[in-house]
Nucleic acid binder design. Structure first.
Lengths: 182, 182, 182, 182
DNA sequence: TATGAATGAGTCTTCATTCAT
DNA sequence: AATGAATGAAGACTCATTCAT
């Protein structure tokens, strides 16, 4: 709830995405707090991971809402989505990297959001804006991959933070757009 | 019964890409051998990771060579590269996921290969085949991300194994190609 | 509950002198702490052995100092030395039993102390108090052996704790003393 | 029974006395045979230790017999005993160092031999040849200690192999003898 | 809230032992 | 008889977690 808590989770997501075996000690240090405090925020490592997933899901859902992806032009919707996703990249990267947990509610929640995104690409295909020789499911998966790549590229300085949003959006849109040449 | 070293590494790569926190026990089981035998092949967990990196590097280098990326049409070169990369996807995915080690020689080796790939995109930009509003470095990073996403999508059944190569190549090419519309 | 580092080392020395193959678990139990705590005190088994050697060396040096062995009558000096050594018997026994490590500084430290003790017997020979048909080096070695035997004899109840000091000193002095009969 | 077997045991005794944690591999190497062969000679590590104890006991018993310690002058008997013990020093050193096993028969066997040696010193005390202010048990224990010290001193070159017997005997005899001065 | 001690649980690593060559 | 592969069992080591300060 508190602002602190979210900051801790951001730090944890960033670290864990890079180094999944990081110890609670390292996570605490990365978040600038002590082990004991980390333990007071989260009952244990499992609870921390759970919270990370839940926050990631919540943020992703919020981004989908804010981008209002069910409305209008699909390419524009994708641009809005990437724009709203930008600050949540570390969290999403963790979500798509942590390819193992996802149980019960979390899994259901993820499926719901993933279905919304897949639906966006399907709508694009129906509207003739998205190529039909790529499945919508793959387009969604590709978006996750590109967001992760973008976050990582920013992290290690290969692209400027301000460029990330455009780079991801442009490559994705170019890749999925139905063009005259095809 | 003797399981080849490379087979063990494949199994380890596949598992670790999905579950970076997998224990030596799980890795051994995934490779169909006992923990002790795993330890006979690799001195310890660190040595295993190192071997994984080295094999991944070697395979990636071999793919770049086999695709002969320095020659001819860049889009065709990319298609050949993705084709030759296909079977090494789990290994490469591990390489780009394991964002933490990479020291000394391994790091230098990676830089060399990455420079070759980045060079390919640069050549495409000079030849007018690749858009110039995306940096070559980002294009390379995007390829890694899409390969990982493809491997993962195949793994969890979202796309057919036989489609993976085409899906990755098409999306990437469409995304980076300089088109008339732009 | 906090058990002092030195107490742990005492317990370890006592146990290891008797049972050199004792596991860390047994050592921890003997010291009244858990294995994990033992590991917090000493980085590993090697570090424990090292610490044991260092403490033994320090105690032996302190005993030599306290006994003021460079002064006066040699037989009296030996008696004082045995007296001051008494409480450190397990530690010294370990030092002379653990005939395998002794590297670098530890080895140098031991040589220095051993030289002091050997020097004491040499002085005795020069003063006519110690027989010259036994080498000083052997006399020193014999002292180590007798101290270990004494510690062991006390441990298994063959001699009374209060008698140990006298038994060792008397036998040693009788053995090395230049007598009228010889 | 075979000569080989005894040679292996000698090598093992020498090594284990110095380094009780030596692995079967190291023992095999020290004996100049392969692991497999070592395993063919002895069912396992425990069996090896048992064999070591039994051989040591047998040799010690043989030495007591050969020295005919129940007869005549006690100091002379001790000299004969040390002389006969000389070549078995490593074995005896192992026996007195391995202060932990000794179960069942082995223990009983040891007690019997130890009693014989203790009896020798008692006889000396009765005959007025051995001081009575040292217990016979301690004298026996001291002999073990001095034999071990002697073997070790020879091993690391502090005393000449040919001097060992005399050094041990002289120091011991001087130490236990009832002298005019006392 | 931070720090340090302490430990149970679980992972990593080694070793004795067996078997096939 | 020796060597190398393979593994169960056992020991070494680490970490998440708790508690006291």
């Amino acid at each position: 709830m508190s602002v602190d808590r979210d900051q801790v989770l951001r730090a944890a997501a960033t670290l864990l995405t890079r180094k999944a075996t990081a110890s609670m000690d390292e996570i605490a240090k990365a978040a600038g707090i002590s082990r004991a405090t980390l333990h007071r925020h989260f009952a244990g490592r499992d609870a921390l991971i759970r919270a990370l997933e839940e926050l990631g899901l919540a943020r992703f859902g919020a981004a989908l809402d804010a981008a209002d992806i069910e409305q209008g032009d699909v390419p524009q919707a994708l641009r809005r989505l990437v724009a709203h996703t930008r600050d949540e990249a570390p969290l999403l990267a963790f979500l798509t990297t942590e390819n193992q947990l996802f149980e019960g509610e979390v899994n259901a929640g993820w499926d719901r959001l993933d279905a919304r995104l897949t639906g966006l690409f399907q709508r694009g295909q129906e509207r003739g804006e998205v190529r039909v020789d790529l499945t919508a499911a793959w387009c969604a998966e590709a978006l996750y991959g590109l967001l992760g790549a973008g976050a990582w590229a920013v992290h290690n300085g290969r692209i400027a933070p301000n460029d990330m949003e455009r780079m991801v959006a442009e490559l994705l849109l170019g890749g999925v757009r139905r063009s005259m040449e095809q």
